[in-house]
């Protein structure tokens, strides 16, 4: 009998592989999608000066408040950041979200002028002129947004501008405490 099973082994291997292939095809997986290395891990270290001179620097302490926090990397020179800006205003005003803004490779004056002109959705904003914090966070460009839960664990990572669907599907449920 065990000898018979041995002869069945190739067929079983095939069945297993085919199952994976069919699964992959049927869920419409995009193999080119890049995952995130930070999701599911503690938020990377943060230690950057505040965007507004004279304010306290931004540190990891921001993630230890016990409340969910959104971290948004932006720049005044970035058009998609402009596009997602109203969504952050709404998150702040309607949902009371705590959003930390980080001006990435952006001159201080220009970033401040940008926020002054459009409105400031951020509870605190920091400056990452050299892009070092971006490196720690696995940033590939701006805008990118991370959702960090009350325990300081990164739960969501959006590359590119947030859109309406992201808000309804994941960001607002996340803020309400539904950890994805």
């Amino acid at each position: 009998m065990s000898r018979r099973l041995l002869y069945l082994l190739p067929l079983l291997t095939l069945a297993l592989m085919a199952g994976f292939f069919a699964w992959s095809l049927l869920i419409g997986r995009d193999p080119a999608a890049i995952g995130s290395v930070v999701v599911g891990r503690p938020a990377p270290p943060l230690n950057i000066p505040a965007l507004q001179e004279g304010q306290a620097p931004l540190t990891d302490a921001l993630f230890k408040s016990g409340k969910p926090v959104l971290v948004n990397f932006f720049a005044s020179w970035c058009a998609p950041c402009l596009a997602e800006h109203p969504l952050f205003m709404r998150l702040k005003e309607r949902e009371g979200a705590i959003v930390i803004g980080i001006a990435w490779k952006n001159k201080r004056d220009e970033a401040l002028a940008w926020l002054k002109r459009l409105g400031n959705p951020f509870q605190t904003a920091g400056l990452d002129l050299e892009g070092k914090a971006g490196l720690d966070w696995g940033l590939s460009g701006v805008p990118e947004t991370y959702a960090v839960d009350g325990n300081g664990i990164v739960r969501l990572h959006f590359r590119g501008p947030l859109i309406e669907r992201d808000l309804t599907d994941s960001v607002i449920p996340f803020l309400k405490g539904n950890t994805p």
Binding site: R4, Y7, L8, P10, L11, L14, A18
Partner: peptide, 10 residues
């Protein structure tokens, strides 16, 4: 092809 072949093989 493979499944048929391997079934016959088994």
């Amino acid at each position: 092809v493979t499944g048929g072949g391997l079934t016959l093989y088994a």
